[in-house]
């Protein structure tokens, strides 16, 4: 019969070992996440020279927003209403066909656009950025940290529908 203390100690050891292996295997991803420079999606690097939405970091998003860039929320209407970046326009990727005409009237093609969605594995902002570039907008960026990074940085979030 092993003492409970010893069993607990071994359990913690197993957890620590597993965590260490996981962090070691993914050390690049982790360090990128903590330094705020997450890898650009593979699609961006694999098409050289093509016109693609450029990734921007949180600090740049704040500067761009202050200098008149248009923030675009690519998530659905409900998530937008639940909380979005101040001043962001709602243009859900799923609704883009119905909404694009109205969006074009509001935003001229010379504007700098910054699209975002739910960060992480969320590809909607990038896909939306591609569509907007195809539609004639020339300067489209993607904020990959998206709404979660903005919110977790303690920056103001606005609730309410469009």
């Amino acid at each position: 019969m092993k003492s409970l203390q010893r069993i607990l100690f071994e359990a913690v050891l197993i957890a620590a070992l597993g965590a260490a292996i996981g962090l070691a295997v993914n050390h690049r991803l982790i360090s990128d996440a903590f330094t705020g420079k997450l890898a650009v999606p593979a699609a961006v690097t694999s098409v050289p020279g093509a016109l693609l939405p450029q990734p921007v970091l949180l600090a740049e998003v704040r500067e761009l927003a202050n200098s008149g860039a248009v923030l675009i929320d690519a998530r659905d209407f409900a998530q937008y209403a639940d909380g979005h970046l101040p001043g962001a326009l709602s243009l859900p990727l799923g609704e883009v066909e119905a909404q694009l005409a109205g969006f074009r009237q509001k935003v001229e093609t010379g504007k700098t656009l910054v699209a975002y969605c739910n960060g992480y594995g969320c590809p909607d902002s990038f896909d939306l950025g591609m569509l907007l570039l195809k539609d004639g907008y020339r300067d489209v960026r993607v904020f990959e940290g998206g709404f979660p990074e903005w919110r977790d940085a303690g920056l103001p979030v606005v609730k309410g529908a469009r």
């Binding site: 197993i14 597993g18 962090l23 982790i30 996440a33 739910n118 979660p148 990074e149």
Partner: peptide, 27 residues
């Protein structure tokens, strides 16, 4: 991304948990 959906951790920590937890489960 799925860990982030739980809205419990700050941005980068979701990655740390996502990297470590599967290997703890595996082991």
């Amino acid at each position: 991304g799925q860990v982030a959906a739980y809205q419990l951790l700050p941005y980068a920590w979701n990655y740390a948990v996502a990297a470590a937890l599967p290997y703890v489960e595996l082991l």
